[in-house]
Computed example of a mutant assay.
Amino acid sequence: MSTTPDKQVTDDAPVAVAPEPGPVSQWLSQQGFEHELLEPDHVGVEQIAVEALFLPVIAAALKSHGFDYLQCQGGYDEGPGERLVCFYHLLAMAEVTEGGADQVREVRLKVFLSRDGQPSVPSLYGLFRGADWQERETFDMFGIQFEGHPHPKRLLMPEDWTGWPLRKDYVQPDFYEMQDAY
């Protein structure tokens, strides 16, 4: 039997092995927060899936646990007909800047959304002011609404633009001017 990091292969068929919970997942479990453990990313950053409804509570708990900096918020499309993903990359910066740690702790929260209807996530603007333009850009490119955001309008595209340009099922108009003509 041979073993790879994400699968165990037997003589019959490969068997998927669940990822081991990292320190953030273990802490969330101890605190009673439900979440789904995802595979770490390509550089080993712990990734955790949370339900949209619980995102603000879990993010607030993580902030109180030292994750005081929202490094990046964004979105991506898994493919035509697939889910949209909203992610938040959090860092524990104060530990490093105050000399209490040699390495930055980091975690990425992911919210998986159906593209049907109007996908929405509660805004983290009240918790991390840096989410302002990042959430607006994610709305502008993917059409994910951020409930409670103080300025929910397009950031990159004109206000009258139709569609969400970074969705993989987006059909680009032949000419930008044609869209304004209607």
Rank of each mutant, 00 (worst) to 15 (best):
A92I: 01
E78L: 14
P21N: 02
D160G: 09
E20C: 12
A60I: 02
A59K: 02
H149T: 00
Q8T: 11
R105P: 09
V85K: 01
R105F: 10
G100E: 13
G130P: 05
R83K: 06
M178V: 06
R105Y: 05
Q179K: 08
D160Q: 15
H42K: 10
A18M: 08
W161T: 05
G143H: 13
A101E: 12
G81D: 11
R167M: 02
F33H: 14
P165D: 02
P19W: 03
P40F: 10
Y182A: 11
A49P: 01
I48H: 09
E36K: 12
L62E: 02
V9N: 12
L37D: 08
Q179I: 06
E82V: 08
Q30F: 12
G148V: 00
V171P: 09
A13L: 07
A16V: 06
P122K: 03
L113W: 05
P150K: 02
P19K: 13
V57D: 15
G117M: 10
K63V: 10
D169H: 13
R115K: 14
F87Q: 09
A92K: 05
G66S: 11
L127D: 13
P173Q: 03
Y182N: 11
P119F: 02
P56K: 01
D12P: 04
E39L: 08
Q179L: 10
Y182I: 13
G99I: 00
S123E: 03
M1H: 13
G126W: 10
G74V: 00
V9K: 10
T138D: 00
E98Y: 07
E34A: 12
K63M: 07
M1Q: 12
D116T: 14
K168E: 04
Q30C: 05
L53M: 08
Q8A: 10
L28A: 01
L124T: 00
K153H: 12
P173G: 03
A49H: 11
L62R: 13
A59C: 07
G75D: 01
R167S: 04
K153Q: 12
Q30I: 10
P158I: 03
E39D: 13
K7N: 14
T138E: 01
D6H: 07
P5M: 05
P158G: 10
F146T: 01
S64M: 06
V104G: 08
Q30P: 07
T10P: 06
C86M: 03
R154V: 05
C86A: 15
P19F: 11
L53H: 05
E98G: 15
V9A: 14
P19A: 03
A59T: 14
P165C: 02
L156R: 04
K110G: 07
K168S: 07
A181W: 08
G32P: 09
E95N: 08
E20A: 15
Y76T: 09
D12S: 15
F142W: 13
G163C: 10
R154Q: 04
F128R: 03
G117C: 11
G79W: 09
Q26V: 15
F67C: 04
V17L: 15
R83A: 07
T3K: 14
L155S: 09
Q145T: 04
F142V: 03
P119E: 06
D140R: 06
E159K: 09
P119Y: 04
Q118H: 13
V15S: 08
K168L: 12
Y182L: 14
F87P: 00
F33T: 06
L53F: 11
Q47K: 15
Q8C: 06
W161C: 08
Y76N: 12
D116N: 11
D41I: 02
M141P: 14
Y182G: 14
S123F: 00
G79T: 02
L155T: 10
L37I: 10
